[in-house]
Design a protein around this nucleic acid. Sequence first.
RNA 1: GCGCUCGUAGCUCAACGGAUAGAGCAUUUGACUACGGAUCAAAAGGUUGGGGGUUCGAAUCCCUCCGAGCGCGCCA
Length: 545
Amino acid sequence: MVAALQNAVDAGDLSVPVPSTVTVERPKNRDHGDYATNVALQLAKAAGKPPRAVAELLAGRLVAITGIKQVDIAGPGFLNITLDAAAQGELARAIVLAGDEYGRGSALTGQNINLEFVSANPTGPIHIGGVRWAAVGDALARTLRAAGAQVGTEYYFNDAGAQIDRFARSLLAAAKGEEIPEDGYVGGYIENIAAQVVAKSPDVLSLPESEAREVFRVEGIALMFAEIKQSLAEFGVHFDVYFNEKELHDKGELDAAVARLREQGHIFEQDGAVWLRTTDFGDDKDRVVKKGDGAWTYFAADCAYYLDKRSRGFDRVVIMLGADHHGYIGRIKAMVACFGDDPEYNVEILIGQLVNLVKDGEPVRMSKRAGTVVTLEDMIELIGVDAARYSLARASVDSSINLDVNLLTKRANDNPVFYVQYAHARMCSVKRNAAELGIDKGTADVFNPGLLVHEKEAELLGVLGEFPRVVASAADLREVHRVARYLEDVATAYHKFYDDCRILPSERYPIPAELTRARLWLAEATQTVVANGLALLGVSAPERM
RNA sequence: GCGCUCGUAGCUCAACGGAUAGAGCAUUUGACUACGGAUCAAAAGGUUGGGGGUUCGAAUCCCUCCGAGCGCGCCA
């Protein structure tokens, strides 16, 4: 497309700057060809010609390209391109031969991205908000890698401070059979962990209060973290690094970070505290990094942590946070700018809206401190890993989602994940049946792409061809739900094809052997795309269901 | 009060500024010895919260009002 445009300019037909990329998309309406572009509309003004005149110039050059059957001009000046069948059918061969590699690309090659998500402190099980990030963050990591980026995933936590103290006191109270403190944590897991600590150290309750609390703190954190990691593993989520805030303090990185900020001229002292002048870069107010009593703030650790990531070679730091943390965007961007980095490039903060659980039409209140929390383990038990991951990954994180407990538990079949997985299982089934009949798709050189001329075959091929672009844009926009939505389109196109185009011959439906082979290639190409796409989401592609 | 995010079919959610706003579920009607019907075909369902503006073209960008959620500590 760009080449055709360049030719037109070179030949003097058009005088416009040639854009580096031209948007070509698959039109929603099949009457608009296999591919369409609005380039003529966009260049019309610069060219000083009516859009349709620009379109005519380009159309003439496009039809000359091999594989393009027809070019139409529609509406205000859209170019609708139709490919010939053999050119489209070739795609099936290319996909099958590429296998696992199909869809992978180099859009983000050269970028070294640090992706931080979940980052829940070990004071309780991962609750549903964290589950959303586990599903989306892990899928995003896979998708970024597929687009060529180098990615390090990271879970940040701290195991000191007031939150953890409350946790330890709650455990102690539970072990003693006393009432949980007013501001403590309640829930079955507290009882459970307290009992485990007592079982491990039977004499803990006879220790002085402060010593006992320390035992519960240390042992409790260890048990809680083991539980968290266990559920994440069951969920198929792996982190390259679990980063403890303590490490920053131990290595003196907070001092180093503040010294660096001071060099940059953004540190000042006031009212006995040390501040970072984040208002220089658009934050609402300046931020304290060291309190009047000499203690560091959490924000100071954030600064040090950012610098630590950068020093480990990551040029893009992506942090995924819940909607209740959106207030941090301003100060983090400003902090990055204070370091002299580019807040538009070096840091990126993704905000995920809430996940609401609805049961019997009533919202289920979620809180780590309530006994009725829905945790990662609950989700796995109730609806399974695949359905949970898929239903969380298929929605944009920009929109809050309502998951109906009754629907997910009783009506699991309604979930689109089954629709996609079923398509995959169906293809596997056809392959099994083919094998029983002694039929094979044959080698690549006997595949005849020109036979795939049915409307549903053309549609399916067109959708399959989109996959690499879907992966690239999902990675670039950090929107993995595009992958899920795309897979639903693939499944639909496959089911329609399956319905209209019989693959295997039977007594009632004789099919020429060559056509059977061609369709087996197409089915296998589809299976490859579905399997590769589900893998990006961390969802299984079952051979039977 | 200030700020952030959002408002799309009855419900749950889509739609790089593009053509007639799309899927699934629910509802209605067909395909039923079927390469697994967990599917397909069709119908119905919308003034994209309201109102202005920007342009060839707006659910999308800008302004304003209404409504929802969440933030505005020398807490973590």
